[in-house]
């Protein structure tokens, strides 16, 4: 096998291992951050600072009894969590994570392998990522419909509503930076912002950036828009009948999607993995992704939920016209 193939396989393994691990660790971070913002301690008892809580939770999820409700459609019920988890990782195939690097020749077996920055450098990267993430919404939809539970049905109805609302905003908000860069490839987005902090697209497209973040919150169903599993209103929505590992798969999918949205925001708007003065690019990239991840937790601690009708009102009557006006202005500027 040539160096690039081995490198790609290594990259795939890295993504699968690290992102799954981060998804687990993310639950701990989320609980701690929320706890500090609400002046509590969070998990403290298992291990130092409650760090082993993740392992305890993992053991609990693995050993729980797998229950499928009697009247549920068993095939679709077990298919739904797989869709969410799988699409979240498929979307990562086109994401650039870190610059391309070569493993030193001195290492055995894998020495000399070229690890590319993306697994599949297709020239339509951003569309592919958004499309696959959109397909991931079939997980909650099918889960809610298959479990023959009223809360589940309401949850999946809200999934459809939420999907049809934010999807337009996501597409339109990303369109403006695409017009400026003139390419759909994530690598081109990164290279277009190589000229230091002033070349970041966020300064040219502040409106698109904010719109994308809002739509991204809706896409990963994070708190201001987590209509699908609103505990106070519909018990747990599409997750009501799920437990154990199937529930865990939804969870991993959701956290992987949060990481994906953070990475898109970092690459498209905030300079990607370019070096900045003396700071190396990969470190800065991790910092940016961590910041966007933290932003999602921060928003969860600071804002209440919205109602479904408020969500639709916001998406169709405020965000979509703003996005269209933004595209019009960008188009005129590009033409001049």
């Amino acid at each position: 096998m040539d160096a690039l193939t081995i490198g790609t396989i290594i990259k795939i393994l890295i993504i699968l291992a690290i992102v799954s691990a981060i998804a687990g660790f993310g639950t701990y971070i989320e609980r701690k951050v929320l706890a500090f913002m609400q002046r509590r301690l969070g998990p403290m008892h298992v291990g130092p600072f409650g760090l082993l809580q993740i392992a305890a939770d993992g053991i609990k999820l693995f050993t729980k009894e797998d229950i499928i409700p009697q009247n549920a459609n068993k095939f679709i019920f077990s298919l739904a969590p797989v869709i969410t988890a799988a699409t979240a990782f498929i979307a990562m195939a086109a994401l650039p994570l870190f610059p391309t690097f070569t493993i030193p020749k001195s290492l055995p077996v894998i020495g000399g392998a070229i690890v590319p920055s993306t697994v599949a450098d297709i020239n339509i990267g951003i569309l592919f990522i958004l499309g696959t993430m959109a397909a991931g919404l079939y997980g909650p939809l099918l889960a809610g419909m298959a479990q023959s539970n009223k809360w589940g049905i309401i949850g999946s109805a809200r999934t459809a509503v939420q999907f049809l609302s934010y999807e337009v905003v996501t597409g339109l908000s990303v369109l403006a930076p695409i017009m400026l860069v003139g390419s759909l490839s994530m690598i081109d987005f990164n290279d277009a912002q190589a000229g230091g902090i002033t070349s970041w697209l966020i300064w040219q497209q502040p409106i698109a950036f904010v719109l994308f973040l809002i739509a991204g919150f809706a896409e990963t169903n994070r708190t201001p828009f987590d209509l699908l599993e609103h505990e106070a209103e519909i018990v747990s929505g599409y997750l009501t009948e799920y437990s154990g590992l199937r529930w865990g798969m939804f969870f991993i999918g959701e956290y992987a999607n949060m990481i994906t949205i953070s990475i898109i925001a970092a690459v498209v708007f905030c300079g990607g993995y370019n070096d900045l003065a003396f700071i190396s690019g990969w470190f800065l990239f991790v910092l940016k992704v961590v910041f966007f991840f933290f932003l999602m937790l921060w928003a969860r601690a600071a804002w209440p939920h919205v109602r479904p009708d408020q969500m639709m009102w916001l998406c169709w009557k405020v965000l979509m016209p703003l996005a269209v006006i933004n595209i019009l202005i960008t188009g005129i500027v590009v033409m001049l």
Binding site: A135, Y138, A157, A160, L164
Partner: peptide, 30 residues
């Protein structure tokens, strides 16, 4: 034809999602 492939994905994922909404309203899906 990568571009057409992704367009197929995006368009039909959304379109069939709307069909699901109607299915949910008209039938008992289980």
């Amino acid at each position: 034809a990568d571009f057409l492939g992704v367009v197929q994905l995006i368009v039909y994922v959304g379109a069939v999602m709307a069909l699901y909404a109607f299915g949910m309203m008209f039938f008992n899906v289980t």
